[in-house]
Deep mutational scan, measured.
Amino acid sequence: SSQSQGISSSSTSTMPNSSQSSHSSSGTLSSLETVSTQELYSIPEDQEPEDQEPEEPTPAPWARLWALQDGFANLECVNDNYWFGRDKSCEYCFDEPLLKRTDKYRTYSKKHFRIFREVGPKNSYIAYIEDHSGNGTFVNTELVGKGKRRPLNNNSEIALSLSRNKVFVFFDLTVDDQSVYPKALRDEYIMSKTLGSGACGEVKLAFERKTCKKVAIKIISKRKFAIGSAREADPALNVETEIEILKKLNHPCIIKIKNFFDAEDYYIVLELMEGGELFDKVVGNKRLKEATCKLYFYQMLLAVQYLHENGIIHRDLKPENVLLSSQEEDCLIKITDFGHSKILGETSLMRTLCGTPTYLAPEVLVSVGTAGYNRAVDCWSLGVILFICLSGYPPFSEHRTQVSLKDQITSGKYNFIPEVWAEVSEKALDLVKKLLVVDPKARFTTEEALRHPWLQDEDMKRKFQDLLSEENESTALPQVLAQPSTSRKRPREGEAEGAETTKRPAVCAAVL
């Protein structure tokens, strides 16, 4: 046999249950609850290399294929790409003598399909299967379609040439079993990697079954959420508030809700932002270029202005709740996480202390139980975000031990490091100062900020419009641009040419 590394010779191994799959997660993409704000000051410096380099560890398999027929071997997927077919160049070659004697062998292509993985959001991997055969590759009886790919989820059954000719079961060793999710959700989405997690739940990458488009699904544990919100009269209202707010909003710089499922837990389906959180971008770069800050901040102002015009105060604006559309420097941003939002009543007064301390406005800290506050709290938070983006460190921090965090904020005395700000323009610093004003009545509004000289930049605004146009074009394009080929190089076993392929839609398939 010419099988590559990772293939075992026996096809009769006992199949494990899916609970053996491991679970991976990374930083929070968007969480309903406010958790302790991640610290920006503690960015690790590059460490000196050791005298002796450690040995390379043996790579762990990321997936496993269990053979369902004699003549096929099990495969431990270690590499990122595997070709399957009769050709000797394939990493998994159909060359077992037992297999060659079967009637089905002649229906398999020289290069029938490939399984591979690509880097997705949060640097996690996504597994795909890609059909290159004349007679078809099927996943859970659905045709992939020649020249098309679809994501592979845990426990997928792979069939060759005929939908009933099941050859492998695919085990993704990095994700959960699909069966743990409600059927209504599974009918519409293929669940994938964990993108982030918080005290009350997690955010998962998923794929729409009909279109193969990526989405983010925010899962909120009702049990954990009820415990964490025990002081509230009705904890469920917080989730329902977020859903109702998101459904009503329609702005290019605000995250869109696509679906909602109320089962044992809450499942909020949101558009996916491939670039992750602004927080991670700031930490990764230490600070952002001023031109990049301007492009992002302009969009934040437009989003918050839209919220305020619609009578909504976000109340928890922070870099973790600003998501980026891509890994590119120039990209769209979207505001997310409306769990603490407040729809303005007639009095415009709110007395609930919520939000993240580092970003809270002075009037929030001094008015607990005594007075109210209004939309100006969001403008203060925007000032803190702009400060961080321009400088790479927070204006107020618990680690300045000589003054408490509350006193720093209520006095408006931010930590100004001259040598850092020497590289920032006077106009940018002036806008920061106009937003970090203790008196909410004297603080800049979103309208005033948008009129500030720093943002009178036609090149930046043109760039934003171009990015918007690109997004609109990409969302308007159909996901499947061509029909699967019906040509046949070899006959199917026991049926006429093209008899099955043309009847089945290529579900969740995307043209390369």
Rank of each mutant, 00 (worst) to 15 (best):
E274H: 09
C331H: 13
K258C: 09
S469C: 15
D265G: 09
V432E: 01
S474Y: 11
P362Q: 00
G355T: 07
R351L: 07
A499G: 04
K286F: 10
L386F: 13
I254R: 01
R375G: 10
R492V: 11
A510I: 13
G494L: 09
V366S: 05
L278A: 01
F416A: 07
D316I: 01
V364R: 15
Q299M: 07
T356R: 00
C508N: 09
N321K: 02
A371K: 09
K489F: 10
I313G: 00
Y414L: 15
Y373T: 00
H308R: 08
I335P: 00
T352F: 02
A263C: 06
D280Y: 15
V424D: 02
A422V: 11
N472D: 10
L481N: 08
C508T: 10
Y296Q: 05
Y393S: 09
W454M: 10
G311W: 10
H314T: 02
G311D: 13
G345N: 14
E290I: 08
S348T: 11
M273V: 05
N415K: 14
V420R: 11
L512P: 12
L450Y: 03
S325L: 09
Y306A: 08
Q305T: 13
L349K: 04
E274K: 07
T356Q: 02
R488S: 14
V437C: 12
A476G: 04
C389V: 07
N250I: 14
T410A: 04
L307T: 01
V480E: 00
S325M: 10
L431R: 03
K334Q: 03
K286I: 09
L295F: 11
I243F: 10
R462F: 12
P252D: 08
K463D: 03
I333T: 08
S341I: 05
W454L: 04
L295K: 13
T475D: 12
H251P: 02
I254W: 09
E329N: 05
I417T: 06
L405V: 09
L317F: 05
L429K: 06
L390P: 03
F260S: 07
T352G: 03
E309R: 09
C379W: 13
N374L: 01
R488P: 12
D316E: 02
K318W: 01
P252M: 13
E419D: 10
E497Q: 15
F297P: 00
R287T: 14
I243S: 11
L436K: 00
A476M: 04
D457E: 14
L390D: 02
P362D: 00
Q408L: 06
K281G: 02
R287E: 15
T446W: 14
A509G: 14
T358L: 12
A291R: 10
L302A: 03
C354Q: 02
T502Y: 00
H308M: 08
M350C: 05
M350W: 01
Y267W: 07
S348N: 15
T486V: 13
P252T: 12
L317G: 01
G276Q: 11
E426W: 12
K289A: 11
K247F: 14
N310D: 11
V437A: 12
H251N: 15
K294W: 06
L353V: 10
Q408R: 10
L302I: 10
K318I: 01
E277C: 03
K334M: 12
L349W: 04
E290L: 05
V366N: 04
F279K: 02
G355K: 06
P478L: 12
N285S: 09
P319Q: 05
E493P: 11
V366T: 04
D316R: 00
V377D: 06
T475F: 02
S367H: 15
K433R: 10
E277H: 01
Y393G: 09
M460I: 09
I313R: 06
T358F: 14
E244V: 15
E290W: 08
D316P: 00
F261C: 08
S326L: 12
G311C: 11
